[in-house]
Design a protein around this nucleic acid. Structure first.
Length: 152
DNA sequence: GCCAACGTTGGC
DNA sequence: GCCAACGTTGGC
């Protein structure tokens, strides 16, 4: 089983949106970056994902969700009214992919970004690298354990 | 709200 | 293929 981290603005789709409907799969749409898209394609059912809250008051890792449906064409790319519409994408050759995710847990406390930056062993995590804008990234088993240990 | 860093676009 | 201009991300 692989591990991942996905960024989101909590007003849009934060950990509380998952927690409020723990039996419901939520489609993760709107990823419009090729590197992030490729990571979405590489996800397997059962993979666990850290949910990271960005562009908000309390920035950091807030909880865990899991992949319940592997990559399929992101429906929003076909909707002209969607902010994520992509006129160059076709049904036959879709550019963008989504996965379905379901709630696993909220962390006992949010782990702030500035704390993550101090943890030995996370130097290679894209999240803590200066200027990194990648919104979907792999997390190694070691990195995953280091992060969970902070709240256990 | 500011702005540095980044990814994408498009002219050449 | 280069690279300047532009738009976006995202911490502060």
């Amino acid at each position: 089983m692989a591990h991942w981290l996905m960024k989101t603005e909590p007003d849009e789709c934060g950990i509380d949106d998952f927690a409020q409907a723990p039996e419901t799969a939520i489609t993760w749409d709107g990823v419009r970056n090729y590197q992030a898209r490729n990571f979405i394609k590489a996800m397997s059912a059962g993979d666990e994902v850290f949910i990271y809250h960005s562009s908000c008051k309390h920035i950091g890792i807030a909880g865990v969700v899991k992949v319940v449906k592997t990559a399929f064409p992101d429906p929003t790319q076909f909707h002209p009214d969607s902010p994520y519409f992509d006129e160059k994408s076709t049904r036959d050759n879709p550019r963008w992919q989504s996965v379905d995710l379901r709630f696993v847990s909220k962390l006992p406390r949010l782990i702030p970004l500035n704390e993550l930056k101090t943890l030995p062993g996370l130097e290679e995590l894209a999240l803590v690298k200066r200027g990194s804008r990648l919104s979907v990234m792999p997390v190694s088993a070691e990195q995953w354990q280091i992060i969970l240990r902070q709240v256990s």
